[in-house]
């Protein structure tokens, strides 16, 4: 663990409330660089909200989020791979168009994509083994292929931090292994990978670090140290909050 570098993402006292119910309450989180972190918790524990707060899509009611930007050279800081169902797959764009969206911040509105952009997009598609699908319409893709396209888009952004929301959920085995391989190679290159993971049985296998949460911070650290029966019980016991006594 690096003691000299600031954490990749520093979160203090994060609180997000929706319809007067706490979704994330007083959360502290220090995510170091160059790790592959799995965020685990039951449904409704605020995991996706946490991702969206980090990305700036949701505004928290209190708390701060600081992202270490000392080392990034591009405009994008964090790349995001959302859940598959967050997008309309009948939209008239090709696979390549979607991946090119990852380069939009590098292209001014009056410019066309440069050769460099095209090369990066081609490289990203190759990483996820979707090069043959570059000109296909996105409606022709299977679930696993859709996930790979999102990953390629994130790769094209060339950021140091990648955030993925349940990327292994509802996809075929081949895609699952492929995505894992890509993420692991990114980590070796020095990137920080943060994944909301849905499956407790594969956490040990995939992630060197784990964060357990259920609206509040329960445990963060090396996977083996964090995944104790006690911690798991604390995370998954339902309900965690007080019912209204009346």
């Amino acid at each position: 663990m690096s003691h000299l570098r600031p954490a990749a993402i520093t979160i203090k006292d994060l609180t997000v409330v929706y319809e007067e119910k706490p979704v994330i309450w007083d959360l502290d989180l220090l995510i170091p660089h160059q790790i592959m972190l799995g965020i685990v918790g039951p449904n409704g524990s605020g995991k996706t909200t946490l991702l969206k707060s980090i990305l700036g899509i949701i505004k928290p009611i209190a708390g701060s989020i600081k992202i270490d930007s000392a080392t990034h050279t591009t405009q994008d800081i964090i790349a995001y791979v959302p859940q598959k169902n967050s997008v309309d797959w009948t939209f008239p764009v090709s696979v390549q168009d979607v991946v090119m969206m990852g380069r939009y911040n590098h292209i001014s509105w009056y410019q066309r994509p440069t050769q460099n952009d095209l090369d990066i997009v081609a490289w990203a598609l190759e990483q996820v083994q979707m090069s043959n699908f570059a000109h296909r319409h996105i409606s022709e893709l299977s679930g696993g292929q859709q996930q790979r396209v999102f990953l390629a888009r994130a790769l094209a952004q060339q950021t140091n931090i990648l955030i993925l929301d349940e990327p292994f959920n509802g996809i075929d085995t081949f895609t699952e292994h492929l995505i894992l391989k890509v993420l692991q190679s990114l980590k070796v290159q020095g990137k920080t990978i943060i994944v909301v993971h849905h499956d407790l049985t594969t956490v040990r296998q995939y992630f060197d670090w784990t964060f357990l949460m259920n609206v509040r911070h329960i445990a963060l650290g090396l996977t083996d140290q964090v995944l104790t029966p006690e911690n798991i019980a604390k995370t998954f016991h339902v309900p965690f909050s007080w019912n209204q006594p009346q």
Partner: peptide, 17 residues
């Protein structure tokens, strides 16, 4: 053009970038 496409296709992604 690009802003409209990306805003319509993936609103969250558009916000992030």
């Amino acid at each position: 053009y690009r802003k409209l496409i990306i805003a319509t296709f993936d609103h969250d992604f558009a916000t992030i970038i």
